[in-house]
Write a protein that binds this DNA or RNA. Structure first.
Lengths: 223, 223
DNA sequence: CGGATCATTTTTGCATGCAAAATCGAACCC
DNA sequence: GGGTTCGATTTTGCATGCAAAAATGATCCG
C-alpha cells in the first residue's frame, strides 16, 4: 500500500477552505472596514451552508480579521489608528528579533531565497507589484530564523498590516525609499551583522508604520 | 431608559463560554497531551450541542491549544520539545521588548500593581502558589507596556507555556531562583533602567525555558 | 412635520439529522 | 499464531430546522 504516497495527504476540510477564501476576500479589501459580513450571502457565494462558514468566522476572529458581535453578526475588523500604531510597534519588536536570529541562522538556501526576493523587488519597482514582493522578502527573512512559532505570529501580523493597504494606497515615494532600506538591510544581512540588521529591520518597520499612520490620519477611515 | 446601565453589556454567547471553559480544562491538564478530545463527551459535560463546541474547538486550534485532524477529530496539542524551545525563544523576544517599553511607560498604578504582585510572591513562597502568582507578575509587566496587541500575543504564549507545568512539575529550587530573578527585575524596574530590565526579563525567560526543557528531556512526554 | 412605538421581516445562535469517513472487532487466510 | 480483510459501530463534517434576538419600516402621537 503505497509507502511513498504518504506525503502531503493534507486533506482539507470545508471550513478550512472557507477560512482561506474568506481571509483572501478580507485581505483583498473587497469589504470595507467595519462592513457587515452577511452569513447568508457568503454561503451563497461559497456554496456552503452556514455551519462551516460560521466556524471559519470564529477562526478569523481569533486571528484578528473580523469582529464578532453577539447576536449582531460579524463585521470586518474596523481600523483604529491607535490599534494600528500598536500593531506596528509590536511588529517592530519581532522584526528586531528576526534580524538578530536570521543573521546567525540563515542557511545558504535562506540567503539565496532572500537574494531572489530582493532582486524581484529591484526588477519590479512599480508600486502595484510592491505589496506582494515586499511581503515575500520579509517572509523570507522571518523564515531564516527557523523558528516556526515566530514565523506564524509574524505572518499573522503581516497580514493584519496588509489589510491596511487600501486606506493608505501605496505611495510611490515610500516604495522607492523602502527599496533603499531593503538595500541597507541586505548589506547588513550579507555581512551577518546581527545588531545592524536588527536595527535596520526595526527602523524599516517604524518608517512604514509612520507612513501608514500619516496616510490614515489624512483619509477619514472608510467603513 | 437607564442611561448609565449601558456599561458592560458584554453578552456572551454560548460558544464563547465554551472556549473559556474548554481552555480552562486544557490548562488544568485534565487531558493528557495528545489525548483525543471526544466531542460527544464534552457536549454532555458542558450541556451543549456539538455546534457551539465545534466552533470553540476551531478557536482553540487557532490559539494553539488543540490540533484538528480532518475527519479524525481534535486532540490536545502534543508537546514537542522543539516547539517548546521555539516558544520560549519567541517569548524571550517579547519579554525583552516588554522590559524596554514598561520601563518607560509604566504609570504609578502599573508600578503599584507590580509591587503588589511581587509582594504576593514573597509572602507565598510555596511552589503550589507559584504558577498563578508568577503569571500575574508577568502579566502586570506586560500590561505596563500599554500595548494591547503585545499583551494579547504575550497572554497567549504565557498560556501555552502554562500548559507545560504538568510535565515539569514546578521545581522548588527553580521557584526560589526565580524569585531572586524577580527581585533583580524589580530593582531594574524601579530604576526604570530599560536595557537592564529588558535583559533581565529575557534572561529570566531563558532560564525558565531551560528548566522546562531539562524537565521535558527527563520525563518521557506523556500522552 | 419630527419622533416614538409596535408589528413584520430578517438574521443570528444553537440543536438536530444525515451521509461519509474512520475506528473497532471478528472472522479468515497463510 | 500473526497478520489481513471485511463488516458493524462510532465519530466526524456538514446541511437543515427552529426559536430568540435584532433590524426594518409602517403607524401613531405630539
Amino acid at each position: 500500500m503505497d509507502i511513498a504516497a504518504t506525503d502531503t495527504p493534507e486533506q482539507t476540510t470545508l471550513h478550512e477552505q472557507i477560512v482561506e477564501r474568506l481571509r483572501a476576500v478580507l485581505l483583498d479589501g473587497e469589504l470595507g472596514y467595519g462592513a457587515k459580513i452577511p452569513e447568508a450571502e457568503l454561503c451563497l457565494r461559497f456554496g456552503v451552508s452556514r455551519t462551516p462558514l460560521r466556524e471559519a468566522l470564529k477562526v478569523l476572529a481569533a486571528e484578528g480579521f473580523v469582529e464578532l458581535r453577539p447576536n449582531r453578526g460579524a463585521i470586518v475588523a474596523p481600523v483604529d489608528p491607535d490599534d494600528v500604531a500598536h500593531l506596528f510597534e509590536f511588529k517592530g519588536a519581532i522584526e528586531h528579533r528576526i534580524g538578530l536570529l536570521a543573521a546567525v541562522r540563515a542557511t545558504a538556501a535562506d540567503q539565496a531565497r532572500l537574494e531572489e526576493c530582493h532582486a524581484l523587488l529591484r526588477t519590479h519597482p512599480e508600486p502595484s507589484a510592491y505589496t506582494a514582493l515586499n511581503q515575500d522578502f520579509h517572509r523570507a527573512l522571518a523564515a531564516a530564523t527557523h523558528n516556526p512559532v515566530l514565523v506564524q505570529t509574524y505572518d499573522n501580523l503581516q497580514k493584519r498590516v496588509l489589510r491596511l493597504r487600501f486606506v493608505v494606497n501605496v505611495n510611490p515615494v515610500r516604495v522607492a525609499q523602502s527599496f533603499d532600506e531593503h538595500e541597507a538591510i541586505m548589506v547588513a544581512f550579507r555581512a551577518r551583522a546581527r545588531l545592524d540588521l536588527a536595527e535596520r529591520l526595526e527602523a524599516h518597520n517604524r518608517l512604514t508604520g509612520e507612513a501608514v499612520l500619516r496616510a490614515l490620519a489624512g483619509s477619514a477611515v472608510p467603513g
